[in-house]
């Protein structure tokens, strides 16, 4: 195959020695940013679900178990009659203890610490049912019952998470710009090094596309090499992060993990960076050659 003999011997350039490492570093940062962004998205999704559909009815602990049971049954019955309530489920004492354990420790499930009864209420937001209305309805029936609409505090939390996602996305964008800038600079340097060869190719009638293709092919290979190294560097860090998240005490944060979709998204960075490098090199060469006679 004679194709190799047409090339500009770009692989021997000094510029190509450090470029894969620069790209690897960019890909490492991009992989961490994208994985972090997608995990934040998972968490904010869980919170958004809370904002959209649920309210919580809290009934203070009664004098004894029978009183608690009576209050909860009355509340559940009453909730069935409210327009806009789609369903209501009692949270079991065991579940409440489990959720409170991270904050209260082993005492969360002990008899010495009376816990309130909790009812999870799924609501239809289009019905204009508000926490105040539900509270006004339940208070006369079950003294001390309060309704908590999570949307008040969850909205600001979700906003914060979305802002963080945007910051991560901006970081990915900046990394992309930096990668493009690096490839432009390296390609121009390469063109300077090979100026005489490019001139000769021009004089023998080579189309600009013919010359650009050689730089683009080289940039694609370098992008692929750098991308693979970057992902190999990122993988153990992401594994460690995933391990920590999986072993977090339940209840502190909604469950988030590096699922297959996140790994695929991170894996896509490799061909993406190779393609970006290829297209950047090609357009840089074509623009530069157009300025030549």
């Amino acid at each position: 195959m004679r194709f190799r003999q047409l090339n500009l011997a770009l692989e021997k350039d000094d510029t190509n020695r450090f470029l894969p490492w620069l790209i690897a570093f960019m890909v490492l940062l991009a992989a961490l940013s994208i994985a972090g962004m997608l995990m934040l998205h998972q968490i904010s999704g869980v919170f958004e679900h809370g904002i959209q559909d649920t309210m919580t009815v809290q009934i203070p602990a009664g004098e004894n178990i029978e009183a608690d049971e009576k209050n909860v049954s009355e509340a559940l019955e009453a909730l069935k009659k409210v327009d806009g309530v789609l369903s209501s489920n009692r949270i079991s004492a065991g579940e409440i203890s489990r959720l409170l354990k991270p904050w209260l420790g082993e005492t969360a499930g002990s008899d010495g610490l009376p816990l309130p009864q909790i009812i999870d209420v799924e609501v239809d937001r289009s019905s204009n049912l508000t926490a105040e209305k539900l509270n006004d309805f339940l208070s006369p029936l079950i003294p001390g019952a309060t309704v908590d609409d999570h949307s008040v505090w969850l909205t600001s939390l979700v906003d914060t998470l979305h802002s963080t996602e945007l910051i991560a996305l901006s970081v990915v964008f900046l990394i992309t710009l930096a990668t493009i800038g690096t490839v432009v600079f390296t390609t121009r340097t390469g063109m300077g090094i090979h100026r005489q060869t490019i001139e000769v190719l021009h004089f023998v009638g080579a189309q600009d596309e013919f010359i650009a293709r050689q730089f683009a092919t080289r940039a694609f290979i370098v992008g692929l090499q750098g991308g693979i190294v970057g992902i190999l560097l990122a993988a153990p860090i992401l594994y460690l992060f995933d391990y920590i998240l999986r072993n977090l005490e339940e209840g502190l944060l909604p469950r988030a993990s590096l699922d297959i979709s996140i790994w695929i998204s991170v894996g896509v960075i490799v061909p993406a960076v190779a393609l970006i490098a290829m297209m950047t090199a090609r357009s840089t060469v074509l623009k530069t050659l157009k300025k030549m006679v």
Binding site: R2, Q5, L6, E199, V204
Partner: peptide, 18 residues
């Protein structure tokens, strides 16, 4: 202005290849 990394054959062949 011969391309130093190409052989004599490939240098001469260049105009035909492009």
């Amino acid at each position: 202005r011969l391309l130093p990394h190409l052989t004599a054959f490939d240098n001469v062949a260049l105009p035909l290849r492009v």
